[in-house]
Design a protein around this nucleic acid. Structure first.
Lengths: 208, 208, 208, 208
DNA sequence: GATGAATGAGTCTTCATTCAT
DNA sequence: AATGAATGAAGACTCATTCAT
């Protein structure tokens, strides 16, 4: 057996560092959720994380940097949960695929209330770059939805519609639902919420 | 006849005061839209309003107070445009009523981009009370929608649904559309947008 | 008599502002002299000036700005006192002209001990621009001296020498003398100091 | 014979320690020269020395301590090069002695640009004690010069002058020349510079 | 002996608010 | 009523120093 090229201490150190980072990230998430980007103070973050002022800057360059890291992490998670619908002949029913994808996404976001709060409210200009990044993320999601809509229309599954506008509306719809779930204390099972959300999007509220 | 209890000068003075107030309110609206609540500085507001620092505090108690006044004004305007659907036998088709009401609302909000920006982004905790007021407003709107949904279901116009959840979703949908209209430079006619929005809400995206 | 175009209050306000500025500038000069550029804290300056923290920034953009203003002011004063020797036929004896010019310069600088300290010690990198400005000033002085030397050599008044090097040496010589005067508590009359300085520069220390 | 009281390993260790110390001292010298005392950060020093943060404090008590050590070292070197002129009957010509002594001194200081920078600029109050030490060194030099001047006057070699003041002036003159040599990229041979400097000090700039 | 993560006092700067004129 | 100079609490960030490993 070859000698382990990465000494045990380094691994420990690395994971200790990662833990510290997580601890700060978590504290920051709560503070951002409570006070918004501008309202959040480094003071509040380090108090919550129970670290010294300087320690914060050992792990993040600036307030903006933590915020950015928070967004990036969330966006990565969310991206994993956004799956393109497979419309190939043998694939599962699109509605079922949609249900699973959305369900996973909602479960993730609703289970992390502070994160949801940050994502929902942070269009509030958190200083240039971070705002841009979030805006870019939402734009990306909208464009995924718009493309899906176009495909759906082409294969006759969906009725004709203005894809950009409809995508914006649907994203808003999901955001509204997330806000609902996060705000209300009494939580319905996510599966039911997802079903209702999908029904609303697919067939609307009108009785047949 | 008794002497007019309100002298002419006072009326003039009162209206001059009201104009000044308006001037400040408008300036504040733009600044809040550009920079968010925390990012907005009294400096920026008084520069835009072309008044002295102290004058600001002659009209508003604090930064939070202008923000609150701004929200209150907007909420009053919006409330006027939210009309309960008349489902009495002789009334116009519910869909047409809905179209007119929504159309008027969207026209109002989309034509005032800064106001829209403030309303959309201001969940970003602008210090306690103002945030609470906006939240209360949205809750009010949601409850109007929820009641309408319940009525609609009762009279068989709408299919059964979870009213709270669906109301939250629909509000989100409208917000998404407003954001779309405000963000995009190329503006579609509001009537078309409204029609699309209503179709989406009523019959969804699925082809029949 | 025409009406005074500048209202009395404005004049008062302007001079009040100027006084405030001077008050801060003086405080800053002492603090810079005591602690050097980096060592000087805004805290120390405002305490000495007996003003509030914010007031400082009403008059100066930054710490660097006060320092720059201080240097500029001093440099302006010094420039006024650096007079080119008139070597025209009817002019006063060059040595006398030199004496008057130097005497005025030394009187000015020696009477303002803190200023002298700042000027003597501030080659210690006070952040970019200010350092550059002071360096430029000294370079300017050196070049004035060098030119004078060249002229003197051409008209046969001075013996041939390397102008740049000699100018640097003479500037150092003056600085040494200033330092001497500023450091020693027992002050000789400036006229005597000036005479000695000039003798040294002109005929050296060697006995004939 | 008794066992050698200083084991070989200790010698090695001692010299290893000395090397480390030198390594840090050199790094510090460059950093102080680049950024001045206050502007210099321990960070910059340890990065340049390629050592860990804690290691620095194993060799020096504090930032001030390295600075002090730097000055002490330089002062020791300089002291070795300051030789009293021998005016005994059989001795070499005083001017030649002076030339050799000054030449050696200038060669040393000019060849170590960072050190020269530190020595020239460090009157910028590097925190109490170090500044005092440098001031003491300069005072010492001045007093050597003053004594030499007095002797020279007594033996009729020099013309009468105020020794303290002239010493201060001459020290300034040397500093001015050093600054000139260190600043200019194009370096004249030190011997020429020395000759010019000595001529200036001895016979001044006036033509006979 | 060497390391570098952690510390927290201290820095510069901003900005909502007050108040004498 | 209007002004704007003055205020000082609070903010983000730096850096010399310590100490457990």
């Amino acid at each position: 057996m070859a000698r382990n090229p990465v000494p045990v201490e380094d691994v420990r150190a690395a994971s200790a560092r990662a833990e510290r980072r997580r601890q700060i990230l978590d504290a920051a998430k709560h503070v951002f959720a409570d006070a918004g980007y501008h309202g959040a103070s480094i003071n509040a973050i380090i108090e919550r994380a129970e670290i010294a002022r300087g320690t914060f800057y050992l792990y993040f360059e600036s307030k903006e940097a933590v915020f950015g890291a928070l967004l990036d992490e969330a966006m990565t998670e969310l991206r994993h949960r956004i799956v393109r619908i497979d419309t190939a002949p043998g694939a599962r029913a699109p509605k079922d695929q949609l249900h699973d994808s959305l369900s996973s996404l909602l479960t993730f976001i609703v289970s992390d209330r502070p994160l949801a709060t940050v994502l929902l409210s942070s269009s509030a200009t958190p200083d240039a770059e971070a705002a841009a990044r979030l805006a870019a993320f939402y734009a990306e999601v909208r464009s995924v939805i718009a493309l899906s809509l176009e495909t759906g229309v082409q294969i006759g599954l969906l009725r004709p519609c203005h894809p950009q506008l409809t995508a914006a509306a649907l994203l808003g719809l999901v955001r509204g639902v997330v806000e609902h779930c996060v705000t209300r204390a009494t939580e319905q099972p996510i599966h039911d919420v997802t079903r209702e959300l999908i029904d609303l999007a697919l067939v609307g509220v009108l009785a047949r």
